[in-house]
């Protein structure tokens, strides 16, 4: 789920950045530092949309660095248990398949794939129903439900299921192309 929230961060800026462009420098550094990071509480910071306020800088003893408390608005993405997501399949193996929804990696175990779908090894490993009407393979888009998440320092990993109504392949570029 995406959220638009306000976060705060203390930015340390080197004196060389001081000048007319201080604010820009600060913002670009903030973007560089923050965008794409992941925290357990908020999930992935997708983009910074604005700066709320830049507090007074405080010179740090000894280094000359200045610390600015910056409040910024950003869009964060955090997957939740029970959430329905659409994701792109990145890898299929005998244990299930991996899919990605933006920065989040989701694993769908074969136990969480409908029982009528079978794994087919080969050049392009895929899961398919016996009649071949549905096929899950790399690049496929699937709709899945997250049943568990694990948050690391740098990534969020989810386990998902497609064993439910209205879940499964929604678009297969390989077959339409």
């Amino acid at each position: 789920m995406f959220f638009h929230i306000v976060l705060e961060r203390n930015m340390q800026l080197h004196p060389r950045f001081f000048g007319r462009n201080l604010r820009e420098n600060l913002v670009s550094k903030l973007m560089k530092d923050v965008e794409g990071t992941c925290s357990g509480r908020h999930g992935f910071v997708v983009a910074i949309t604005g700066i709320e306020s830049v507090g007074k800088g405080l010179i740090r003893d000894g280094t000359g660095f200045v610390t600015f408390p910056v409040k910024y608005q950003c869009v964060v993405f955090r997957p939740f248990k029970g959430e329905i997501l659409e994701a792109v399949v990145t890898l299929v193996n005998k244990m299930g398949f991996f899919a990605e929804a933006g920065p989040v990696q989701i694993f769908v175990s074969k136990h969480l794939i409908p029982d009528d779908m079978e794994f087919q090894a080969g050049d392009m490993p895929h899961y398919t129903t016996s009649d071949g009407s549905v096929k899950i393979q790399k690049e496929c888009e699937v709709r899945l439900k997250i049943i568990g998440t694990r948050v690391d320092a740098t990534e969020i990993f989810c386990v998902g299921t497609i064993k439910d109504d209205f879940l499964g392949v929604i678009n297969d570029p390989a077959s339409t192309a």
């Binding site: 136990h111 568990g148 694990r150």
Partner: peptide, 15 residues
């Protein structure tokens, strides 16, 4: 993470 529960047997996806 538990991916399947079969009575007293669990299938876990190892981290």
């Amino acid at each position: 993470m538990v991916v399947k529960v079969d009575q007293h047997v669990l299938i876990i996806l190892s981290d």
